[in-house]
């Protein structure tokens, strides 16, 4: 309906992804302000379990669109199904996570519907009945405020970790409605050969609450093992600044910064990272920053909440042990 706020839900192994829950929490608040309902839209092969999980997180209505052709994800199928659903229901606002999928199909969807779209939203507010987003621009050297035109469907592609996952209320349920949206195999022009999982024992960067990141100061690829060990102990993800990527120590998907990923975890632990602007562009939105560097003049200390001038090769192994001890608590 016209004042509803939708979330297009991403899911994996029968569970909604963290980003979708974050968006659902925000959708509830915005729907309240706009006088509509928070609606979750779940496309996929078999999404019944996902659909059931969404009520406790604030969905008023859950629409499912089930079709085997929706998995694995393709831009063609997703755009078709989400597009048709939106055409039919005409919500005022659609929240899509800024993920590999969201960034892929959301602009295509906007072009198809002629809908207003704002990407990389770091906040989304209703201000005097108009909808306003803020977003990092100029490689995070500026924050822009963008106002949507008031007509028609509006799409917001929202950054991960800007809104908290709402507290689940197990008693709360949502009405689940199945939508029938025709999808023809011929409409899907691309073919996914496979999705190769990158085997890591640590959490993916964009979903981590804690990130342990290494820079030139690690001196070589072998020393990333120190970060892996600490990350494992903390339940954290491992990232890097650009020099280790350029030197081939770690793959490109580790890179945080202007030419890599933008992250905003609870804690960012920068090890041997000097803090070049190119790197700061990707991590300065972190809630807490801890930096270890041997150079007291390293610019990273200008924004770290806790800066340690010291030898990371001595500190990291001891820190890993201490974290294990702290996490192990009484079980040790």
């Amino acid at each position: 309906m016209a004042n509803d706020v939708w979330v297009v839900v991403e899911h994996e192994s029968g569970q909604p992804k963290k980003i979708s829950l974050e968006l659902l929490g925000r959708a509830g608040q915005l729907a309240l302000a706009l006088g509509g309902k928070a609606v979750a839209f779940v496309p996929g092969r078999d999404v019944s379990a996902v659909a059931r999980a969404l009520g406790p997180y604030g969905a008023d209505i859950v629409y499912t669109a089930q079709d085997p052709l929706l998995e694995p994800y393709t831009a063609d199928a997703q755009t078709q199904v989400v597009g048709e659903a939106l055409r039919k229901e005409q919500p005022t606002l659609v929240l899509i996570g800024s993920t590999a999928q969201g960034r892929d199909y959301a602009p295509r969807l906007a072009a198809r519907l002629g809908a207003a779209i704002v990407t990389d939203c770091a906040s989304l507010e209703v201000d005097n009945s108009s909808l306003v987003a803020t977003r990092p621009m100029y490689t995070r050297k500026a924050i822009g405020t963008v106002m949507y035109a008031s007509e028609g469907i509006r799409i917001a592609v929202v950054l991960p970790a800007v809104y908290p996952v709402p507290q689940a209320d197990p008693k709360r349920t949502a009405e689940v409605r199945a939508m029938r949206i025709p999808l023809d195999a011929k409409q899907i022009r691309t073919k996914v050969h496979e999705v190769q999982a990158i085997k890591r024992e640590t959490v993916p960067l964009t979903e981590a609450d804690v990130i342990v990141s290494g820079g030139r100061g690690l001196r070589g690829p072998e020393n990333f093992a120190l970060l892996d060990a600490l990350a494992k102990a903390l339940g954290a993800a491992v990232g890097s600044s650009r020099p280790p990527v350029d030197s081939g120590w770690v793959p490109h998907d580790y890179e945080i910064g202007q030419t890599g990923k933008t992250v905003s975890p609870q804690v960012y632990l920068a090890c041997g990272i000097s803090g070049a602007p190119q790197h700061l562009a990707g991590m300065s939105g972190s809630k807490h920053i801890v930096a270890i560097n041997k150079d007291p003049n390293a610019p990273i200390f200008q924004l770290a909440d806790l800066g340690i001038v010291g030898d990371l090769f001595e500190i990291l192994p001891k820190l890993t042990e201490a974290v294990k001890k702290a996490k192990g608590g009484n079980r040790d």
Partner: peptide, 29 residues
């Protein structure tokens, strides 16, 4: 369908504590 209404510099982070420390003290901190 959307327009930029304002551009501001990102909020500046305040530097916190910077300490020179040996490994044990650093870990404790």
């Amino acid at each position: 369908s959307s327009r930029l209404t304002k551009l501001v510099p990102p909020p500046k982070r305040q530097a916190g504590r910077v300490i020179e420390a040996d490994a044990d003290k650093a870990v404790a901190e």
